[in-house]
Design a protein around this nucleic acid. Structure first.
Length: 381
DNA sequence: AATATGCACAACCGCCTTTTG
DNA sequence: ACAAAAGGCGGTTGTGCATAT
């Protein structure tokens, strides 16, 4: 499998699908199809009809339901406890995993003396008991990272979590839903598209740019979809840190690097590295912090490279990420009456500049993406 | 003081993907 | 190659606490 040069691919997609009516599922299907078959897009016949995809999914779903109705429901055994975990249960699970590793989660509960399903145990461990979890308020940097990654990846919480060391996807998801999403809505920004709800005038003329970004995102998704077996030559990347934990079990293996990071890296280098003015804007979005938090020009993914090493070229200002000190935590009052005052996001100038940056960033991405993801004569997928 | 409401977050559910036999 | 089991993910719900009425 070889990397596809994305620039012509995306051009082709644009021919087949005008940006405004671009259909995500269709584009994703195309990308997956192309990636899996290592072919180029030769005609519209290569496009997998959305209806067909839906039908296949529906058939599989119904088949699964039948299986489940035959008593194959995951983890819903008789007499198993549900609901909040007690300290005693936590102690048993923690003790067992630390001593023996989790092994097969399904077989763990009886061994550990727990009347829980394996799935419940796994979730309790990964979201709460794991010793390397960072709890407490999200730092400004973390919050900023979440917003940026969400803009690019959407609700891919696990992928986002992989870039926030010691944070769980569940925690990030909750934080998004209970904090950031509400704040964005309050500011008139659609949290799903990251676009101003009332900014139609400017945006309508620049939907093309947004669509291009969407295509880049879908490209990343497509790569995620087909990431698996053939990445063995790649070094493991920054995935959930618990795989490096000394409690890790024999069943846990290093995960392959996430190809989408290539996009992130280019995006980071070409767009956000130039984002000096809008960095402040973003800070405004992130919070109306009443603490004086220093705002370094921020290399969100400065510690991430596709090969798992640290790429100094992606850093700015030699900022070194460190673990959050509790004293660095900040507070803000989202209901502060002044919260929405002087909001740069509402300025037409901001959006014009933003679009210019997108334009420049996009050109660089289309130029560089294939280079970065595809070393000459090297099968990378 | 009692009740209602809002919030944060832990936990569950259903589906999908990956692994295993 | 296939089916079943296991693991993983994202959406949603439930629970407990704080605050408002």
């Amino acid at each position: 499998m070889y990397v596809i040069d994305t620039a012509p691919l995306i051009s082709l997609i644009y021919i087949a699908h005008p940006p405004i009516s671009m259909d995500k599922q269709t584009i994703l299907s195309i990308l997956i199809h192309l990636s899996l078959s290592n072919t180029s897009l030769s005609s519209s016949a290569d496009i997998i009809p959305r209806e067909r995809v839906r039908h296949i999914k529906m058939v599989k779903s119904e088949k699964k339901k039948k299986q489940n109705n035959n008593g194959n429901m995951d983890g819903l055994g008789v007499g198993l406890k549900k609901g909040p975990w007690t300290p005693e249960e936590d102690r048993k699970l923690l003790s067992y995993v630390q001593q023996f590793g989790h092994g097969s989660w399904r077989s763990l509960p009886p061994k550990a003396g727990l009347k829980r399903c394996g799935k419940s145990c796994r979730l309790r461990w990964t979201n709460y008991l794991r010793p390397d979890i960072k709890r407490g308020k999200f730092s400004l940097e973390e919050e900023r990272t979440i917003i940026q990654l969400h803009a690019l990846l959407g609700n891919r919480w696990s992928t986002i979590a992989a870039q926030l060391p010691r944070r769980t996807d569940n925690e990030i998801k909750n934080y998004w839903n209970s904090h950031i999403k509400k704040r964005m809505t309050k500011m008139g920004i659609d949290p799903m598209t990251h676009k101003p709800k009332n900014g139609t005038q400017l945006l309508s003329s620049n939907l093309n740019h947004m669509a291009q970004w969407e295509a880049a995102r879908l490209e990343a998704e497509a790569r995620l979809v087909q990431k698996p077996n053939n990445h063995q030559t790649q070094q493991p990347s920054l995935v959930s840190p618990y795989i490096h934990d000394h409690h890790k079990t024999p069943t846990k293996v290093p995960q392959p690097y996430l190809p989408c990071l290539d996009v992130l890296k280019v995006w980071q280098r070409n767009l956000w590295s130039n984002y000096s003015i809008n960095n402040e804007t973003l800070q405004s979005l992130i919070s109306n912090s009443n603490a004086s938090v220093a705002t370094p020009a921020m290399p969100v993914l400065s510690h991430v490279c596709s090969n798992g090493s640290c790429d100094q070229t992606t850093k700015r200002n030699d900022h070194v990420e460190t673990e959050m000190d509790p004293s660095e935590e900040f507070t803000y009052d989202a209901d502060d009456a002044n919260f929405l005052n002087d909001d740069p996001l509402r300025s037409p100038d901001f959006w014009e500049e933003f679009v210019d940056l997108l334009d420049g960033g996009w050109k660089n991405i289309t130029n560089n993406f294939a280079i970065i993801t595809s070393p000459p004569a090297s099968p990378v997928c």
